[in-house]
Amino acid sequence: MAYAIKAEIADSGAETFVFTAQKTMYGGKRIAVGDTVFLFASETKGGQGLVARGVVTAAEAIPLKPGVERQTPRVSIAVNRTALASRPLGRRELKAFADWQDGRPQTELNFKFYRQATNKIVGLSEPAAAFLAGYF
């Protein structure tokens, strides 16, 4: 399965990344060791969008807090980088894809990452993962 994470990434050229207690949406809570993950440096934190692809080397679900009715599942992951993005892909490139029903991979990415601007881990469809693979 393929996933994507949008988070604060201080050094996009790093060989390894650790993301602690990240929100998950759209199936992101199922991320596991061995999964492919596309890393987006959050534009709200000074990043430029897609920066790298990697493989999950550790994944741990954060336990839900007792007594809290509505909680977003959170996961901590470690990722080894396998490739750097060869061209830009971020909010600016995806903004035009806002017809939520058109089935395009660009629209899926825009919807999952930028409709709600929070940083998060999301699950990807096969077409979206194939689309992102073309950036490496």
Results as ranks from 00 to 15, higher is better:
Tyr3Pro: 14
Ala4Met: 15
Ala4Gln: 08
Ile5Leu: 14
Ile5Ser: 06
Ile5Asp: 05
Lys6Trp: 06
Lys6His: 05
Ala7Asn: 12
Glu8Pro: 12
Glu8Trp: 13
Ile9Gly: 01
Asp11Val: 13
Ser12Gly: 00
Gly13Thr: 05
Gly13Arg: 11
Ala14Phe: 10
Ala14Ser: 13
Glu15Cys: 00
Thr16Asn: 15
Thr16Asp: 12
Thr16Phe: 15
Phe17Thr: 02
Val18Glu: 10
Phe19Glu: 00
Phe19Cys: 00
Phe19Lys: 00
Ala21Ser: 12
Ala21Asn: 13
Gln22His: 03
Lys23Gly: 00
Met25Tyr: 14
Gly27Arg: 09
Gly28His: 06
Lys29Glu: 15
Lys29Ala: 14
Arg30Phe: 14
Arg30Cys: 04
Ile31Gln: 00
Ile31His: 02
Ala32Thr: 01
Ala32Asn: 04
Ala32His: 03
Ala32Cys: 01
Ala32Ile: 00
Val33Pro: 04
Val33Lys: 13
Gly34Asp: 10
Asp35Leu: 02
Thr36Tyr: 04
Thr36Val: 13
Leu39Asp: 08
Leu39Gly: 10
Phe40Met: 12
Phe40Ile: 06
Ala41Asp: 04
Ala41Pro: 05
Ala41Phe: 04
Glu43Val: 08
Thr44Asp: 14
Lys45Gln: 14
Gly46Ser: 04
Gly47Phe: 10
Leu50Cys: 11
Leu50Ser: 09
Val51Asn: 04
Val51Phe: 11
Ala52Glu: 12
Ala52Val: 13
Gly54Lys: 08
Val55Leu: 08
Val56Gln: 01
Thr57Gly: 07
Ala58Pro: 04
Glu60Lys: 15
Ala61Lys: 14
Ala61His: 10
Ile62Thr: 13
Ile62Asp: 06
Pro63Ala: 13
Leu64Val: 02
Lys65Cys: 01
Pro66Gly: 14
Val68Trp: 03
Glu69Tyr: 12
Thr72Pro: 02
Thr72Gln: 05
Arg74Ala: 03
Ser76Glu: 01
Ile77His: 03
Ile77Tyr: 05
Ala78Asn: 00
Arg81Val: 07
Thr82Asn: 02
Leu84Ser: 15
Leu84Asp: 11
Ala85Met: 07
Arg87Gly: 00
Arg87Lys: 15
Arg87Trp: 01
Arg87His: 02
Leu89Gly: 01
Gly90Asn: 07
Arg92Gln: 13
Arg92His: 12
Leu94Thr: 03
Ala96Gln: 14
Phe97Val: 00
Ala98Lys: 11
Ala98Cys: 07
Trp100Cys: 00
Trp100Phe: 15
Asp102Arg: 02
Asp102Leu: 03
Asp102Tyr: 07
Gly103Glu: 03
Gly103Asp: 05
Pro105Asp: 02
Glu108Met: 06
Glu108Pro: 12
Glu108Asp: 10
Asn110Pro: 07
Phe111Tyr: 15
Gln116Asp: 09
Lys120Trp: 04
Ile121Ala: 04
Ile121Asn: 03
Ile121Pro: 09
Val122His: 08
Val122Glu: 07
Val122Phe: 13
Val122Ser: 12
Gly123Leu: 11
Gly123Lys: 09
Leu124Cys: 10
Leu124Thr: 08
Ser125His: 09
Glu126Asn: 10
Ala129Asn: 01
Ala129Val: 01
Ala129Trp: 02
Ala130Asp: 13
Phe131Met: 06
Ala133Ser: 10
Gly134Val: 02
Gly134Phe: 08
Gly134Pro: 11
Tyr135Met: 02
Tyr135His: 07
